[in-house]
Structure formats: C-alpha cells, structure tokens
C-alpha cells in the first residue's frame, strides 16, 4: 500500500462551545477520489477546510505526504499550492476578468507568466471564448469551471471541492461534473463534499458518510449505496434518494 497523500488522525475542531468534528480518521491515497456525504451541518465543509489548513484544527494530525501540516505555526504557503480548493459560491474575484482571476496566483506566488498554460486550460474546459469576461457576465456553471481552472493553474496534486454544484441551476450541474470527470481521468487526488449521489456512486473510489462530526460509515460506493450497515446512513440515503 502506497503512502497516503492525505492522512487525518483524531482531528477535532470546535467553534466556541460547539464541537463540530469529533476525532476524524481518514486517509486518501494518491489518485483516489473520496466523496463526503451527509446531512447539512454534519461537518463536511469544516473537514475540507481543515485539510488545507484554512481552519486550524484543535487536536489531531493532518499529514500531507507524511508531513503534519496541523502542527501549530506550520507554514501553510506551500501546502496551498499543492492542494486546490473550490467552494460552493463566491469563488471568483468579481473585479477581474476570468483570465486575471486565474493568472493572479501563478504570477504572484509562482512568479510565472502562465498565459499559454492558462489558455490551454480554458480551451480544455470549453471556456476559451469567455476568457476575457468578468464573472458577472458568466453563468454559474461557467463561473465554477473558471474557479476550478484557477485552482488547477497552481498545479496542485490534490483538489478539494465543497458542494461546488449546490448553488447551480439543475441544467448547469452537468457541465461542472464533466470537469470533475476529466480530472478523475487525469488521476487527480480529490476529496469532494457533494449531494450528487449518482455522480458519487459512479466515480468515487470511496464514500464517507458524515454524521454529527464523525465519519459514521465508509466504504466503496456499491457497499454504501446498496447495503449500508448503519441506521443513520440508511435514513440519510432514503431521504436524499427518494
């Protein structure tokens, strides 16, 4: 078994008096695609944010290629180049064109004029004609695709996605999921919080069902979706698949 790309052990996180994560253990192998499912408020977003250090964890370890990035005081700059993240909404900088949104971080962080590479990314994901538009001239689906391109422009080996299709009109969901499929084909390591159960079942290597701040059940999509063992898992799936 190869060394995991990401390995979380005993991760806890509270906001004030409210404990949101109660000791999470999770490991993600290189090239693996893990989907986090679970009711709203179960802690999926918080877990993702702990994985790239956006939220400091209270206790436990978050190892990236064996290095504990949850160590208080750890320099997270390099981590953020290796792990890209896309949120549910408000991702893009509204005062910049799609191109500038994407080009900013490579220029400022990597010191690189990545024009050619960026134009290739726009072309690859079907956005070449929109490269000079401002975010509010793009549809929600196009905006989310630009956000993905923006994260990819930093050449990360791992991508985190936090319900990136939840705020979209139904007819726009497909074009964004297609992008994720392409990344899957590229062998990108991915962790997704999602409500797209069909998509998760089709593509995920592993499904983690989160309930009240713990990973209540995990396993292959077939096992989780066809024969979940926990009662909470069954209830949740029944409510979303109805």
């Amino acid at each position: 078994m190869p060394e995991p790309r990401l390995a979380l052990r005993g991760v806890t996180k509270s906001f004030g008096d409210v404990q949101v994560l109660h000791g999470i253990d999770l490991s993600v192998a290189p090239g693996e695609m893990v989907c986090l499912i679970g009711a709203s408020g179960s802690g999926k977003s918080t877990l993702l944010r702990c994985m790239n250090g956006l939220e400091p964890v209270d206790d436990g370890e978050v190892r990236l290629d064996g290095v504990d990035i949850a160590e208080p005081g750890f320099d997270l700059g390099p981590v953020r180049q290796q792990i890209g993240i896309v949120f549910q909404s408000f991702n893009l900088f509204p005062h910049m064109t799609a191109y500038d949104n994407v080009a900013l971080a490579p220029r400022r962080v990597l010191g690189e004029d990545a024009r050619v590479r960026i134009e290739e990314l726009f072309t690859r994901f079907g956005l070449a004609t929109h490269i000079s538009k401002y975010p509010d001239q793009l549809s929600g689906g196009q905006q989310q695709r630009v956000a993905v391109i923006r994260a990819l422009a930093m050449r990360p080996h791992t991508m985190l996605f936090d319900e990136i299709t939840s705020a979209l009109d139904p007819e726009l969901v497909g074009e964004v999921l297609d992008v994720l499929r392409q990344l899957r084909d590229d062998g990108m390591t991915m962790v997704l919080a999602t409500h797209e159960m069909g998509f998760a079942r089709e593509l995920a290597d592993r499904i983690c069902f989160m309930d009240k701040g713990v990973i209540a059940e995990e396993g292959s999509p077939d096992v989780i979706f066809s024969s979940p063992t926990r009662k909470r898992t069954k209830q949740f799936l029944a409510s979303v698949l109805r």
């Binding site: 953020r80 909404s89 408000f90 991702n91 900013l104 400022r108």
Partner: peptide
C-alpha cells in the same frame, strides 16, 4: 465577503497580496 479572502488565501496568496 470573507469568502473572497478565503479564496485568495487558498490560492496561496500572501495576506499582503
């Protein structure tokens, strides 16, 4: 909105940038 800052930080931009 705080998410703008989060988005920038997650891209690896410094606080200054």
């Amino acid at each position: 909105h705080a998410s703008q800052r989060n988005a920038a930080i997650c891209l690896g931009l410094s606080e200054r940038d």
